[in-house]
Design a binder for these strands. Structure first.
Lengths: 146, 146
DNA sequence: ATACCTGCAAAGGCTTTGCGGTTCG
DNA sequence: CGAACCGCAAAGCCTTTGCAGGTAT
């Protein structure tokens, strides 16, 4: 895992390279995403940004996460529920997902799948593993035998 | 893979057990899903059902796929784009996903990940692997070197 | 100075819901 | 006959977009 400061700096450098303006809102969105471990929704990011810049608009957050995604600095993760979630962790990692409440946790696995670079005509680029189950909180709430 | 007729019959039996009415629309939705290999969207299922029952409503299809999901007979798969897709293939299988157009293809793998039944406090139930890449059609459209 | 960006509000798309009439069991 | 279901239309999210004013370079 690369250092957060370094990633933020990389982001700023790349913005300059690509002629994108470095605005406080943009930096805030990426910084918040870098410091989140819970794969926040756009709304959640928005709430955080608002603490620093109360006049920020939700549309700006949407535009920024889209930019980040296009730059390859964040990923959109979408499993259940209505709203998309974002993840700035671009290391090879996988997800542990609660089938009840939708919570997502990052997980690193030793095992490595050997995926051919060509499969059924597809040129493959990468993979991710989703492990489904019940999170500790939801197990608690369910019958004690689970 | 279990036979389609058998699955349809199971569905009907379970409906009876659970006091759910067996309506033509319901049967049609499940039947269409069973015979689809392309993980159709609700809209696509709707278009198919309409061929048999022109007066069917989109809301009914939404309600039915939700029922099927709750019964464990279909899964909602949601990666990109706006609309959810459904899959009645409940065998252990994985997905090959085109990052460009969102096409999804089922894939069966020899390799088996050994997932502990308990992981970071989660009680695990299963997993799925998503392999990302460019589908044949999109490779074609891109530069010939891809 | 200018190209890019933001905030606002409106529009757009997918999905859910309320209701009256209908159908299955 | 009664409970469950359907079709219709409206409402409800989440997300995108157009525009006028503001900001970074």
């Amino acid at each position: 895992m690369v250092d957060r400061e370094e990633r933020l700096q990389d982001f700023i450098d790349r913005c300059r390279q690509e002629g994108l303006k470095i605005t406080p809102q943009r930096v805030a969105v990426y910084e918040i995403l870098l410091n989140s471990y819970n794969h926040p929704t756009v709304e959640e990011i928005y709430d955080e940004v608002k603490k620093r810049y109360p006049f920020v608009s939700l549309a700006t957050v949407y535009r920024t996460v889209e930019t980040l995604e296009q730059m390859g600095l964040a990923k959109k993760v979408c499993y259940w529920g209505s709203s998309a979630r974002y993840d700035a962790n671009i290391d090879e990692h996988h997800h542990l997902i609660c089938v009840k409440c939708g919570a997502i946790r990052d997980i690193y696995m030793e095992e490595d799948l050997s995926i051919p670079s060509e499969l059924e005509g597809f040129r493959t680029e990468g993979y991710s593993v989703n492990i489904y189950g019940l999170c500790p909180e939801c197990r608690e709430k369910a019958q004690p035998t689970s």
